[in-house]
C-alpha cells in the first residue's frame, strides 16, 4: 500500500497519548502501590519512605515459595490447555458434522467464569466428589479417605486442571481459526513429497499453529498467574499462591503488615509486565498473517 502525504504528516503523539490514557490506571496503580510499599501512603504509613517492606517481603522465604509455586501452576495449566487446544484443532479440522460438533464442544465453556470453574472442580475432584464416587462405583475405592487429594494439594493438581479446563476453550478458538487458515496446499505438498501424516503434523502443522498461538498462550499464562478466585478455592494453605497471599496481607489484622500486600502486588505486576512485553514481541515477530494464506 502506498503511503499518502497526509498520512505521513500525521503525528503519532495524539494516538500515543490516548494509549497512555488507557494504561493510566495501571500506571497510577503502580505509582500508588510503590508509594504504599515504601510506606508513605495507605495503611500503617509514616512520613519517611523506607525500603523496609521490600526487604521484609523479598527476604521472606514464603514470598519466593509462593512465587515459584504460582509460576509452576500457571505454566502447567497453560501447557495442558495449549496441548489440548492444539489437539482439538488438528484432530477435528474437517468440515464433517462430527468434527464441527467436536469443535463446538471444545469451545462451549468459553464464557464460564473462573469462579464457576473452581466451584465445579470442587464438586468433581474433592475427596467425596463425583470422580471419587465414580471410582467407588467401579470398585477402585472404598472410602473418600482413599481418594488421593486433588484439591488443596501441594502439587496443585485440582487448581491446574481447573485452570486448564477454563482456558482450553479460549486457546481452542484461536487454534481452530489458525488451523482453518493454514493453506491446504502446504499439507498436500508435504504429503506429495512423501511425508507421513504424523511427520506433516509435527513438522508443518504444529510449528505454524504454535507461532500463531503464542500471543494467546502468553495471555493465558498471565491470566492463570493472577487468578484469585480459582486459587483461593483450590490451592493449599502452604505454599499459598501469590494472589491469595496478596489478598491475605490486604486484610491482615495487623495494620503494619498490610503494606506488604503492595510489594506482592508489584511483584505480580512485574511478572505481568514481562509477559506483556513478550506478548507484543511475539505478535510483532509472528503475526497471524504469516500463517494465513494472504
Amino acid at each position: 500500500m502506498s503511503a499518502r502525504p497526509d498520512r505521513l504528516r500525521e503525528s503519532p503523539l495524539g494516538p500515543l497519548l490516548l494509549a497512555a490514557l488507557v494504561a493510566l490506571p495501571v500506571l497510577l496503580g503502580v505509582a500508588y502501590a510503590l508509594l504504599a510499599a515504601l510506606g508513605v501512603l495507605g495503611a500503617g504509613s509514616s512520613d519517611t519512605a523506607s525500603l523496609d517492606r521490600f526487604a521484609t517481603v523479598l527476604g521472606a522465604r514464603s514470598t519466593w515459595r509462593a512465587l515459584g509455586w504460582t509460576l509452576y501452576v500457571a505454566a502447567a495449566a497453560t501447557a495442558l490447555a495449549t496441548a489440548g487446544a492444539a489437539l482439538v484443532a488438528m484432530g477435528f479440522a474437517s468440515n464433517t458434522r462430527l468434527d464441527r460438533s467436536a469443535r463446538a464442544l471444545a469451545t462451549l465453556p468459553l464464557p464460564v467464569p473462573h469462579l464457576v470453574a473452581a466451584a465445579t472442580a470442587l464438586l468433581v475432584l474433592a475427596q467425596s466428589g463425583l470422580l471419587a464416587r465414580l471410582l467407588f462405583a467401579a470398585g477402585l475405592l472404598d472410602a473418600p479417605a482413599d481418594m488421593p487429594p486433588l484439591v488443596y494439594d501441594g502439587a496443585g493438581v485440582g487448581l491446574i486442571v481447573a485452570l486448564a479446563w477454563k482456558e482450553l476453550p479460549f486457546l481452542a478458538v484461536v487454534a481452530i481459526a489458525l488451523r482453518q487458515d493454514i493453506d491446504p496446499a502446504l499439507d498436500e505438498t508435504a504429503r506429495t513429497l512423501g511425508a507421513a501424516p504424523r511427520y506433516v503434523r509435527r513438522r508443518v502443522m504444529w510449528p505454524l499453529l504454535w507461532r500463531g498461538m503464542l500471543p494467546a498462550v502468553i495471555a493465558v499464562f498471565v491470566f492463570a498467574l493472577g487468578s484469585y478466585e480459582t486459587a483461593v478455592l483450590l490451592a493449599p494453605v502452604d505454599p499459598a499462591p501469590l494472589a491469595v497471599l496478596t489478598m491475605e496481607r490486604f486484610a491482615d489484622p495487623a495494620l503494619a503488615r498490610r503494606g506488604d500486600a503492595y510489594v506482592l502486588a508489584l511483584v505480580t505486576l512485574a511478572l505481568a509486565g514481562v509477559a506483556v512485553a513478550a506478548h507484543e514481541w511475539a505478535r510483532a515477530r509472528w503475526s497471524a498473517t504469516t500463517v494465513s494464506r494472504a
Binding site: 497510577l28 502501590a33 504504599a36 495507605g42 490486604f250 505486576l269 507484543e280
Partner: peptide, 22 residues
C-alpha cells in the same frame, strides 16, 4: 498496543491494589 494491553494483562488483584488507593 502494549500500553493498551497493560490493563488487560495486569492481574486484577495487583491492579486493584493500586486502584483501591486511587
Amino acid at each position: 498496543a502494549a500500553l493498551v494491553f497493560l490493563p488487560v494483562a495486569a492481574p486484577p488483584i495487583a491492579l486493584g491494589a493500586g486502584l483501591q488507593v486511587a
